[in-house]
Design a protein around this nucleic acid. Structure first.
Length: 207
DNA sequence: GGGAAGATGTTCT
DNA sequence: GAACATCTTCCCT
């Protein structure tokens, strides 16, 4: 993995948000800065929907913060939380419909040394980007990238080359509303997922 | 202008 | 497993 992988096309983002959250698993999030290239395989996501989802930032209409969620799909929605952390989302849904997919964890792929330097505290690969705040730190993602088109340098998503894998659905993490919805998705048995669910369900069966 | 909550991470028990 | 640091955003007065 040395060459810069090509970005996924705009058409990739033209699927419903839940499908996109699952489709993003296994794809590669790439970030270039003056320091170098860093990239990781997306292994965990969460869907935030416009309908019947009070946990979604867009559930009470558009504000200055969540404006990118109402823009075109395939853009970055980055916000600052808890005084310390950034969270990176991929906007989804048609323009005007506030939805997005939160990227929660990456399996480091490229630029590991640089990511280690940025994280500092992390002592091993597993802890490098296994959480939304951690991955933003590792890839140097902040609100300067809010609204950025994810087909373009210096932050883009490229097609991954993972072999077949199973997807698990589970409740979302860190929210206080709509906690029963199974809108978190991750790659089964992947060590870089932030937290495994006590009951691992297959999203295809509707269990 | 003020207050409360928050899609977290770390540290301590 | 629970507490808490930290500060921006949003909503209300």
């Amino acid at each position: 993995m040395n060459l810069m992988p090509r970005p996924l096309p705009f058409s990739f983002y033209l699927q419903d948000t839940v499908s996109l959250a699952r489709a993003l698993l296994g794809q590669v999030l790439c970030r270039r800065t003056a320091e170098g290239l860093t990239a990781g395989i997306i292994v965990e996501t969460e869907a935030y929907l416009s309908q019947d989802d009070p946990a979604c930032h867009a559930s009470r209409g558009m504000t200055r913060r969540n404006a990118p969620m109402f823009g075109p799909p395939g853009r970055a929605y980055v916000y600052f939380i808890y005084g310390n952390h950034y969270c990176f989302n991929v906007t989804s849904g048609a323009e005007g419909v506030g939805e997005a997919v939160l990227v929660r964890a990456l399996q480091p792929l490229e630029g590991v040394e640089l990511m280690l330097r940025r994280r500092g505290e992390a002592v091993n690969l597993v802890d490098l980007a296994n959480g939304p705040g951690k991955l933003c730190r590792a890839l140097s993602i902040d609100t300067a990238l809010n609204g950025h088109d994810l087909r373009k340098d210096p932050l883009w998503i490229a097609a991954g080359r993972l072999a077949h894998f199973e997807v698990v659905s589970a409740p979302r993490i860190g929210i206080t509303q709509a906690t029963e919805k199974l809108l978190r998705f991750y790659i089964k048995d992947n060590n870089y997922v932030s937290r495994r669910a006590s009951i691992e369900r297959n999203p295809g069966t509707g269990d």
